[in-house]
């Protein structure tokens, strides 16, 4: 049982939680996630650790309401307990000084991107971040992102904030303008697919953090499997980050529709 310390609504859809989890706060690294279950009949669902405070013993999750399970978490209030929380899971992000790193985050994908932006900056990289969402209200964590980015480009589908256009337009601007050593992309699978196709065209090495359906999150079931470079991988233990140019995004998109 893990206690919720604080809650902040970023929008009607996106909520930030600070949760007591001292052991995880101590051992987690950028890129790690946790499995969360709310209630005895609840499902186990994965969420990335957006940040942590090892001294306070807390971790931060940023959660978007999309269906039943995320809704259940988002209804919890400070003082409530999460029935089960386990982690940190997955492989940590490979951090080093690559040179210039372009981070492309869409929607709630910005939350899992934040610790990577921070770690990349601290490793000495020049970090350029492209934030994208359908409209202004759905752009999250902009201030935190700005803190660790050398430059931030905001894209909205409807032009209500930043530039009007898709994330790929923002990414292409940067690539055409200056050399980029690595691109990191996190967001809806379809978005990562298009970012990946674009960076492939420009030969920019790209890492995508995949959000497949999971059950246990520990390598036990294979529900999370994806094809990377023609080989089946388990996202929860082999990932969640993979070479985006090797990922079979069409298969992944198909498998995400298994239960609807």
């Amino acid at each position: 049982m893990n206690k919720i310390i604080s809650k902040e609504n970023f929008s009607d859809k996106v909520v930030k939680f600070e949760i007591e989890a001292p052991l995880i706060a101590k051992s987690r690294k950028a890129g790690h996630f946790v499995m969360v279950r709310v209630g005895k009949k609840g499902e186990r669902v994965p969420y990335t650790i957006a940040s942590s405070d090892p001294i306070k013993g807390t971790i931060t999750l940023v959660i978007q309401r999309v269906g039943k399970s995320s809704e259940k978490v988002c209804q919890l209030e400070p003082g409530d307990y999460i029935t089960d929380l386990v982690g940190p899971l997955g492989k940590a992000t490979h951090i080093e000084n690559f040179g210039t790193v372009l981070c492309a985050g869409g929607g709630v994908g910005v939350a899992p991107m934040l610790p990577i932006i921070e770690a990349m900056k601290n490793a000495g990289n020049k970090v350029i971040t492209v934030l994208a969402a359908r409209n202004k209200d759905l752009i999250i964590l902009e201030d935190q992102v700005r803190k660790f980015s050398d430059e931030v480009i905001v894209m909205t589908d409807d032009g209500s904030y930043g530039q009007k256009g898709l994330i790929t337009a923002g990414v292409e601007q940067v690539i055409q303008r200056e050399p980029v050593n690595l691109c990191v992309t996190i967001g809806p699978a379809i978005m990562m697919k298009f970012v990946s196709e674009l960076t492939k065209k420009y030969n920019v090495p790209t890492v995508a953090s995949l959000n497949t359906i999971m059950v246990d999150g520990t390598g036990m079931c294979g529900a999370c499997r994806v094809t990377v470079g023609g080989v089946t991988k388990f996202v929860c233990v082999d990932g969640p980050e993979f070479d985006a140019h090797q990922v079979d995004f069409d298969e992944m998109l198909m498998r995400l529709r298994a239960y609807n």
């Binding site: 246990d216 079931c221 529900a223 499997r225 089946t232 298969e251 198909m254 498998r255 298994a258």
Partner: peptide
């Protein structure tokens, strides 16, 4: 075809 929807490991099925 092993990654088609509806094909799963025994562990996944029994765990669910």
């Amino acid at each position: 075809g092993e990654n088609l929807i509806g094909v799963m490991s025994c562990n996944e099925y029994l765990t669910r």
